[in-house]
Structure formats: C-alpha cells, structure tokens
C-alpha cells in the first residue's frame, strides 16, 4: 500500500505531499503522523502542500484532525505552501482551517514553529536568527 513518507528533522516532523490524496492514503497519513508524534515526542509537524492542487472538505478535515490531535500531544501543526487557487477555493467553500497554523514555505513554517514552541533561545545560540542579539531591547 502507498504511504506518504514522514521525515524527522530535529524536534519536528516534515511531510511533503506530492500526489493527489485519495481518502485511504489521507487516513493512513493521519494515523502514521500521529503515531510518529507520540513515538518521537516531536514538538511540531510541518505539512507541505505546495504540490497539492485540490483540497476538499475531506482533506481539510484531515488537516484539522492532525492539528487537533497533535496539539493534545503537545505538538503544533503548520501547513505550508498552499497554492493561491486552493486558498481561494477553501474560503469560498467555507473552510478556513481553524486551529491550523499556516506559513508561506517550509523555512517560514519552521521559524513559526520555533516561535510557537518557545525554544527560540536554542535557535539564537545556533546563530540562525536573522537579527543579532544586541538589537533586542
């Protein structure tokens, strides 16, 4: 059976959806992702949907479910790279993905997650933050 690969990147899990999801594949992804969160104790989940051309209410519900379930296990979910046409369609459909964080791309999503889970200090030590420390008041 087909499976969407889940990558572990530091404290986060990264999923890149490259194919049109049929229902069973989406449900499998939900299961796999949630068990991965519990196994690894991941603090965040990044779902890259930049290659997805259709998000209908079923797929929207899966994304919402993943976010709510992860939150219970203390992990935040960020959906990144939604296409403009998909965003317009979802809004028209009445689906605004409440409770799911969004970001323009994986990099910005990663920044957002670091901010959300409050391990920004670790990040600054690694000198990855754009602004130098002396800028902070």
């Amino acid at each position: 059976m087909d499976r969407i690969p889940i990558l572990k990147m530091g404290p986060f899990l990264l999923v890149t959806i490259q194919v049109d999801l049929y229902d069973r594949l989406a449900l499998t992804l939900e299961n796999d992702l949630i068990s991965m969160v519990s196994q690894t104790g991941a603090k965040g989940v990044l779902i890259d949907i930049s290659a997805v051309t259709i998000v209908d209410s079923f797929m929207g519900r899966i994304l919402g479910n993943i976010a709510s379930m992860s939150r219970i296990m203390d992990a935040e979910t960020v959906v990144v790279g939604m296409q403009p046409a998909v965003a317009i369609t979802l809004v028209e459909l009445g689906l605004t993905l409440q409770g799911v964080y969004t970001a323009l791309d994986v990099e910005k999503g990663m920044d957002l997650l670091y901010n959300k889970i409050g391990i920004i200090d670790v990040l600054e030590e690694d000198d990855q933050e754009e602004e130098p420390d002396d800028c902070n008041d």
């Binding site: 259709i54 209908d56 209410s57 046409a85 317009i88 369609t89 028209e92 459909l93």
Partner: peptide, 17 residues
C-alpha cells in the same frame, strides 16, 4: 483559469464524495 478549474474540481470532489 486555474482558480476556476480548482473551484469546479473541488465542487466535483465534494459531490462525488
């Protein structure tokens, strides 16, 4: 156009479900 295509296909997907 792409947006209209996406709207139509999403509607079709909902109905077929």
């Amino acid at each position: 156009s792409l947006v209209n295509q996406t709207k139509l296909i999403t509607a079709a997907s909902e109905l077929v479900r």
